[in-house]
């Protein structure tokens, strides 16, 4: 229950971090908030030879407005800081919905936005939120910067497209559609635990009340966050009511394969995710209506 020995580096600039990552390759792990990595070290599930602590790289701790109406969040920004940012949660209300569900306040005080995205836990909320809102993840190495659509960033359980020498530097979230409502619904056995299943919805309505656009992303339905494109198309053009939401939810989980473990088997989890899609759609539509009336 104590971390195994490691060599520790505490750089103060992105350039230094990139040099260290280039030098140590897959022997190194980046330490941001540590709210997932240090438990893994304490359990000895991870035994990196080198830790690169980025907590002194203050240039990565920022939230800024983008010209397109969206926001850009530096990787080291604490989750609590995003939650408390008027700019962030006004421009992307789904972030506020999602962050309230991320573990507990004490964890969010330390946990970082970029850390949660880079950790790529399929049961984590932030990866689902950035997939639902078509964010772009920027990663940098000494060779340059890559901008990766969130939907292509996650490869499998705890695995992303990032190479060993790349550092996640920021996540850019575009403006959400006008007259839209958002919702993040999940079911966990205890408040703050990793959820058994969940869903994020961003719904924009036309003036006649029918759905103009919908984005749906699933939590815990597979080993990465899943965009339910077919279910999205199924609700567009229709009013979002109990019947259309239930139909979309059924469709959203049709071909998914959640994991089975002692907390719930795949069938049960699929039904949980389905129920969360239904709830998220109805809640998001209700909020969109409230905003436009």
């Amino acid at each position: 229950m104590k971390p195994p020995p490691f060599e520790l580096h505490r750089p103060t600039s992105v350039e230094e971090v990139l040099s260290l990552l280039a030098e140590h390759g897959d022997d190194a792990k980046v330490l941001a908030g540590g709210q997932s990595l240090i438990p893994l070290l304490n359990f000895r599930l991870a035994r990196p030879e080198v830790l690169v602590d980025i907590n002194r790289v203050t240039e990565l701790d920022r939230i800024s407005a983008s010209p397109d109406g969206g926001i850009s969040i530096g990787a080291l920004t604490r989750q609590a800081a995003v939650e408390a940012s008027e700019l962030a949660v006004t421009r992307n209300p789904l972030l506020g919905d999602a962050l309230r569900l991320v573990a507990h306040p004490q964890i969010r005080n330390r946990g970082t936005f970029g850390g949660s995205v880079a950790h790529a836990d399929p049961a984590a909320e932030l990866p689902v939120a950035i997939v639902a809102t078509d964010a772009t993840v920027s990663v940098r190495s000494r060779g340059g910067e890559r901008r990766i659509p969130a939907g292509e960033f996650f490869v499998s359980h705890l695995t992303t497209v990032m190479a060993d020498d790349e550092l996640l530097v920021s996540v850019d979230l575009p403006a959400v559609p006008e007259r839209c409502g958002t919702a993040f619904e999940e079911f966990a056995r205890r408040s703050g635990d990793y959820a058994l299943g969940g869903a994020a919805a961003v719904v924009a309505l036309r003036s006649d009340g029918s759905c103009a656009s919908a984005a749906l992303a699933l939590l815990g339905a597979g080993d990465v966050p899943i965009r339910a494109r077919e279910a999205e198309s199924a609700v567009v053009g229709r009013p979002i009511d109990a019947a259309s939401a239930a139909e979309a939810a059924r469709q959203a989980v049709r071909d998914t394969s959640p994991i089975s473990n002692m907390h719930g088997d795949a069938d049960y989890r699929r039904r949980v995710v389905e129920a969360m899609v239904e709830r998220a759609l109805l809640k998001a539509a209700g909020r969109a209506e409230a905003r436009s009336s």
């Binding site: 971390p3 520790l8 330490l31 540590g34 709210q35 240090i38 438990p39 304490n42 602590d53 609590a80 306040p105 004490q106 964890i107 005080n109 330390r110």
Partner: peptide
């Protein structure tokens, strides 16, 4: 001034 877990911080 902010509550944090001391067991998962170096």
């Amino acid at each position: 001034g902010e509550p944090v877990r001391s067991c998962i911080m170096l």
